[in-house]
Nucleic acid binder design. Structure first.
Length: 905
DNA sequence: GCTTCGCATGGAA
DNA sequence: GTTCCATGCGAAG
């Protein structure tokens, strides 16, 4: 590698030293350094080459940049902020670094044959050597092919980045910092000029960090360039005299300057320079392949140090062209852990794993090229199984497809499992919308949720696609410097990340950064949430559409912003079952009655429930809309608008409406027309489905109930999303034209500002109480219904047939207050359907009238009485089930119900 | 009634 | 104004 350069390998003129801090004109003594992306080698002047060859590049040229750390063992200064030096230290499980000398002492070393494999990395304890073609030692001394693949990324970088390995990335402001960087570079260059001069003069202060000495003494001769292991004359142009085993000459062989600049991308200031380069940046294949590879993916990593504090991962280098092609949010920010995930089992030097340990995927020297990443949207993480791919990314990195059907695409996950997705596109606005179909199993296996990030990488030369992931919580986990737990593939083995240093602590294979339990709660206990962030009904492995973790705003696309739900907000909706139960606690003063359902005892808090449910359809007698709740007077059936936080009496009457004195009497008119009220009634579905809306709370499935719960929960917050006026309720919302009041999609649930009022779990506002109560009631009802419906239906039919009255016109027949309870059953659909489809009052209500929940029904009936007294006790046995609740035009409430079911009526 | 598929929509960049 | 893409939604199974 250090052989004299041949003319063929020389880059086009002008021939100056590749080291931009040098830029000396190359003379006859120039040597080639690391291999460039173009396949050629970095041309170094003799002096720089000497420095590079002897592993003193950092000491010489990076002494004034960030990334210097002290060896945890010997205290020796070690530069960790650039590619050049990242072989010279070992990341410690406990954080910090050890210089290579101390690391050798501390860990079990492979049987390195320095002469043969001078570039091998340490074989550290607890690391299971790859079983691939390089058993027993690291693959660090990769083949030239590998090196080429690694080094092609490190051909002459831009001025901005190439000599500032200590500068970390910034996601947001990076591109605005060029000027500053240029200044820094200038300064750095000047400083390095001084350094070179002093170095050339043998100034010992500039060779104080020679890592490896014969005696391994961390201190002796540390600052003495003439001490053992040091090359007194750095410009000998030869490594003679240097013991390759003691000297990190693998720096020059393997990565060293080759990776210069990459470190800047993948490190952060917060890590104290421990970040090490992780991956070979990607370059779009189809779109930029024809461009100069030397100019790709570079400039954006030039950033201001101050802006990167929270940025963990660097950015791939991209030039302006690449930036225009791939939105920054898709730039891969692959981490050590991700690479470890990709590469599978990995030893110690995670920073190098992408180079070293590809045995899980390849038996040969391979390189992982991070291609792009994407934060999962709710749709992506949903059960649809479609992952929308950024167009540019898809076109750049995935095979070209000419048919919408696309083609199967094999993608390997971290555990080495191969998935086959259908890579296809949809025609869309004269463009294409690329999707990966069939990703659900993979997503689920990774336990990914909306907000998490999937990364796509490519293993070369095989060209295999690898899918990694990064949990949304990982960032916070980093910031909290907390250890993370392993994911499914990795079992429960603990893994850790030095959050500050971004030092992965041997996470298990296949795991990058699992959700931090402490930051996200016990995920295992979280119920499923639908894409709107609501609870789903199928198990703890469901997806929680939590908002993405707080990343740099610039990394969040517009769509992502929709997901940017405050943690508190998201957590409000993420109630575990246990938490939900906790929330369902009745008022302290409530005295329950015990209801036995299916052999289980339930405490029923009648009044507690009544205050909200009143044992009847919520939509009928109380609903919440537009920051108000609407209650129906038991006497006159008029609807009164009340403050959302108003505590309602057991039986609401107009006289209870102290908030609107002018409407505190049954004589006063209703504020809104029935149509307007009907529009305000929150429904699960949009208008197109409104006719299908079940107005019978008792018949709401739990799933519906959960949605409704969420609906209720967010109604208060979603006010801004919905037109407040009833007349506008049918109009598209400000968020989405298809959304209507009551819509619980992720768009609608989030206040436009993203900072709506927040309800704590302990909140006792009416909305929250409603949620809690409904939740409980719905669950109980569900159980009851499943058990008793069929039998009771028949029984009720029998009873009702005895009370047959002249058929009415398919009208729900509420009962007057105080009417004969036996007639209650008359409201039941008696057509034999009795399927509880939501449009009828379930027969079980009557049967259960003496049970706790049935009390609600009784109350319901009572309240319903005045609504339609003219039609009381009328049963239409001929009506269709879906019309059985069709109301009398004389009844306001029934009119509403009718409107709900049949707006056209 | 549920799921899947394919396209349409429209907010955001 | 254009493009992207998250997501809604109807049709079909």
């Amino acid at each position: 590698m250090s052989s004299p350069q041949t003319p063929a390998a020389v880059a086009a003129p002008p021939k100056i030293c590749f080291n931009t801090l040098c830029k000396e004109k190359l003379e006859a003594t120039w040597r080639k350094g690391w291999r460039l992306r173009s396949g050629s080698y970095a041309d170094l002047c003799a002096r720089c080459f000497c420095t590079y060859e002897q592993g003193m590049f950092c000491e010489t040229f990076h002494s004034d940049v960030a990334g210097w750390r002290n060896c945890e063992t010997c205290g020796k200064r070690v530069h960790c902020g650039c590619i050049v030096s990242f072989h010279t230290y070992a990341l410690l499980d406990t954080g910090g670094v050890d210089c290579i000398t101390c690391a050798r002492k501390s860990f079990v070393l492979p049987a390195l044959n320095a002469a043969d494999t001078p570039n091998q990395m340490l074989h550290v304890k607890n690391w299971k050597p790859p079983t691939g073609p390089f058993p027993g030692h690291w693959m660090w001394n990769a083949s030239s092919k590998l090196q080429q693949r690694l080094q092609y990324e490190f051909d002459r970088p831009s001025n901005i980045e190439k000599s500032i390995p200590g500068i970390r990335s910034s996601i947001s402001a990076q591109e605005k910092k060029y000027e500053d960087l240029q200044e820094r570079i200038t300064s750095s260059t000047q400083n390095n000029q001084i350094i070179r001069e002093r170095y050339a003069n043998g100034d010992p202060s500039f060779s104080c960090n020679i890592y490896h000495r014969d005696d391994g003494n961390p201190t002796a001769g540390e600052n003495d360039p003439t001490s053992k292991g040091l090359i007194s004359d750095p410009c000998l142009g030869s490594s003679s005299g240097v013991n390759p085993e003691k000297h990190p000459n693998f720096l020059k062989e393997d990565s060293s300057p080759v990776l210069l600049g990459l470190a800047a991308q993948f490190s952060s200031p917060s890590n104290g320079g421990k970040d090490a380069p992780r991956a070979v940046p990607a370059q779009p294949q189809r779109q930029v392949a024809a461009t100069s590879s030397q100019k790709q993916f570079y400039s954006h990593n030039a950033v201001d140090v101050e802006t990167q504090g929270q940025i963990r991962n660097g950015r791939p280098r991209m030039d302006a062209r690449a930036r225009t092609q791939l939105l920054p949010r898709y730039w891969p920010r692959i981490t050590d852990q991700e690479l470890q995930q990709i590469t599978g089992e990995y030893p110690f030097f995670l920073s190098h794993e992408y180079i070293i340990n590809l045995h899980a995927f390849s038996s040969s020297n391979s390189v992982i090229t991070p291609l792009f990443e994407k934060m999962l949207s709710a749709s992506d993480a949903g059960r649809i199984g479609r992952l929308v791919l950024p167009k540019k990314c898809a076109e750049a990195y995935f095979p070209a497809i000419n048919q919408p059907e696309g083609l199967p695409l094999k993608v390997q996950d971290a555990s080495g499992k191969e998935w086959v997705f259908q890579f296809r596109y949809w025609p869309n606005n004269n463009s294409r919308m690329y999707v990966l179909e069939g990703v659900t199993p993979c997503i689920q296996s990774m336990q990914l949720q909306a907000g998490d990030t999937v990364t796509f990488s490519r293993i070369d030369p095989e060209g295999k696609l690898v899918m990694g992931f990064r949990k949304a919580s990982s960032i916070s986990a980093e910031q909290d410097a907390q250890t993370v737990k392993s994911g499914p593939e990795g079992g429960n083995e603990s893994t850790g990340v030095d959050s500050n240093a971004n030092i992965p602590l041997r996470p298990p294979k296949g795991i990058i950064e699992s959700r931090n339990p402490s930051s996200h709660g016990d995920q295992a206990t979280l119920p499923k949430f639908d894409k709107g962030g609501f609870i789903q009904k199928d198990g703890p492995l469901g997806k929680s559409s939590h908002g993405p973790s707080k990343r740099k705003g610039s990394s969040l696309g517009s769509k992502s912003k929709r997901l940017r739900i405050e943690n508190e907000d998201s957590m409000e909706l993420k109630l575990s079952w246990e938490e939900a139960q906790e929330l369902l606690r009745p008022p302290p003063n409530s005295v329950p009655s015990v209801v036995v359902i299916e052999g289980h005892e339930f405490e029923e808090f009648e009044k507690f429930l009544y205050s909200i449910f009143i044992g009847k359809p919520v939509e009928k007698l109380l609903f919440i809309s537009d920051s108000h709740q609407w209650a129906q007077c038991e006497e006159c059936s008029k609807w009164r608008k009340l403050p959302v936080d108003a505590l309602l009496p057991y039986r609401f009457l107009c006289s209870d409406n102290k908030w609107e004195p002018e409407r505190s009497s049954c004589l006063s008119a209703q504020e809104l027309s029935l149509e307007q009220l009907a529009e305000l009634i929150p429904t699960k579905s949009g208008p197109s489905r409104r006719p299908k809306v079940k107005v019978e709370a008792e018949n709401i499935e739990v799933s519906d109930g959960l949605d409704t719960l969420a609906n209720l929960a967010i109604l208060g917050e979603a006010e801004a999303a919905f037109p407040s006026s009833s007349s506008a309720s049918q109009q598209p919302t400000t968020k989405h034209p298809r959304h209507r009041p009551g819509c619980t999609c992720i768009v609608c649930i989030q206040p436009p500002s993203g900072k709506g009022p927040k309800h704590k779990q302990t909140c006792t506002c009416n909305v929250c109480l409603t949620v809690k109560r409904r939740f409980r009631t719905l669950m109980l009802r569900r159980e009851k219904r499943q058990e008793a419906e069929t039998a009771r239906k028949q029984q009720m039919q029998k009873e009702l047939q005895q009370q047959l009255l002249p058929p009415a016109t398919g009208v729900l027949l509420p009962q007057p207050l105080g009417h004969d309870p036996s007639s209650t059953g008359s409201i039941i659909n008696t057509n034999g359907n009795g399927n509880g489809d939501g449009n009828s009052v379930s027969p079980k209500k009557v049967v259960m009238s003496n049970e706790g929940l049935a009390d609600e029904v009784l109350e319901h009936k009572k309240v319903m009485v005045p609504i339609s007294s003219p039609l009381k006790a009328q049963i239409d046995l001929n009506i269709q089930p879906e019309r059985e609740e069709e109301s009398s035009p004389k009844s306001d409430a029934l009119g509403i119900m009718k409107l709900i079911r049949d707006p056209a009526a």
